[in-house]
Simulated scan of single mutants.
Amino acid sequence: MSETPRRPRRDPRRERLQHRIEAGARPRFDLAAAPGDSERPRRDPRAERRLAEVPGTPRLRLDRTQRVAAAARPSPAPVPDAGPRLVAIAEPAFLVAVVPDAPQGRLTPHDRQLFGAARLLADAGGGAVLALGTCEDLARAGADRVLPLPVAGYDPEARAMALHAVLAALDIRHALLPESPEGGDLARRLAALLDEPLFAGAESLNAQAVTRPARGRRIEQRRSPPRLITLAADAALPHAGTLHEALDVAFAFPPLMPGAILSAEAVPADPALVPLAEADFVVAAGNGVVDFGTFHALVEALHATPGASRMVCDAGLMPRAAQVGASGTVLEARCYFALGIAGAPQHLQGVARCQHVVAVNTDLHAAMVERAGLAIIADAQQVMPALLRELAREAGE
């Protein structure tokens, strides 16, 4: 075994001899000289006092605002930001498969939490994370390998058969899917094809155990992680800090038999009728909005769901069901567009889970402006017609 390098031991006698001045009968020492083996320079209070003296004054005056000692020391060179560290796993011991929902090729927050849980399982034993499906930002999400599935559109039966072929051929120790409408349905189809147990709705996960509530959340079920697991939302943190390779994997899929689904098409719901808790894009009005005709026209042009602050609902300008906040509806939207909303604490609690927040307010220091990822410091009454004109121009083009 190699010994840990120790810090060199100081020799006070030798350091004292290095500072000694060979002159005179009595021993004298220059304590301001450079120390021996120590990298920390010794302070000289007399020199600092001389440098702090203000010249041209009859009485002694010192300028204590100048940090002479700190300025005299050589400042360390700035370390350039090299960005996230790239992690490469050449020969993994096993694979942890992740099947994200990834609507429209974008990872949802639930998908990123899935990759974070997969990294916990893979890093505990020298494994690698395999993403089954193609979408953006897989390397930053934590994927070491990527295997596209030969299935287009909504076809859960064909996707389940393709996943069955992958799990039967590759050394996959765990397969993680989101406990969502699509991910949960796919996981149960896959469990039936593999004839394996499924641990559904896991709320905590590590390399030793996986848990979930049962019997109306009165008890907790715990066991070692099985092969098939679906993860509940907010059960794990997303991966952050390192960049992974996301290398493409070559795999020969067997010919997939045609299933019972001949064609499927997603029918978008009317955003004006979608409940706030299920809305993807919410445009909300606050005290800074006076012209609600223009506000509703903007909401319709943006294909968004209307919302409002508590003060607007209390005034009867919007229905109570449109109230956003801790005393109204807590949003899970991908984007929240706040028009003239200052941002009370209970309102900010209602938008805490939104991915992107855009705020329009005349107050630069409003709480909603600080929360927003993009802020427009202007009057909402002037921004709304400008947005409508820009949307009409793009629609005409």
Rank of each mutant, 00 (worst) to 15 (best):
G36K: 09
P385G: 10
P238E: 00
H296E: 15
A90K: 09
R173F: 00
A23N: 06
I219W: 13
R218K: 15
A77T: 15
G24H: 05
P319Q: 11
L176A: 05
E179P: 03
V151P: 05
R40M: 12
T362R: 12
G216I: 10
T305P: 00
P255M: 05
L132A: 09
G286N: 05
V79P: 06
A297F: 04
G126M: 04
V330L: 10
L107N: 02
G142H: 02
P156C: 12
A25S: 07
E136D: 14
L176D: 03
G396D: 07
F292E: 04
R14M: 13
R371H: 09
L243G: 03
R20Y: 02
L114W: 05
A162R: 06
F94T: 05
T134Y: 05
D30T: 11
G241C: 07
L51C: 12
G105W: 07
Q208G: 02
P103E: 06
R393S: 15
L130T: 04
D63V: 06
A192W: 12
A175L: 09
A33D: 10
G259M: 04
R310W: 04
L273P: 00
A88R: 15
R173Q: 06
A308I: 06
V54I: 15
A333P: 00
V360D: 02
L186G: 07
F281T: 08
F115D: 00
R159D: 07
R217A: 15
L256Y: 08
N206W: 03
A131E: 01
D11T: 09
D44H: 09
V267E: 15
A90T: 10
A246V: 10
G259T: 11
R85H: 13
A160D: 07
S327P: 08
G396W: 14
P58E: 11
G24D: 01
D44I: 12
S2F: 12
P306D: 08
V289F: 06
R334E: 14
R85P: 06
I376H: 00
A338I: 01
S309A: 09
E182W: 10
F115L: 09
A191K: 00
E182I: 11
P35V: 05
F292Q: 04
D314K: 13
H174P: 05
V312M: 01
P12E: 13
E136P: 04
E22D: 11
R85E: 15
A277M: 02
A77V: 15
P109L: 08
E203P: 03
P306H: 07
Q323R: 09
N206M: 03
E22M: 08
D123I: 00
E182Q: 15
E53W: 13
L276D: 03
A139R: 10
Q104R: 14
A285W: 02
A128H: 04
R85Y: 11
Q346A: 12
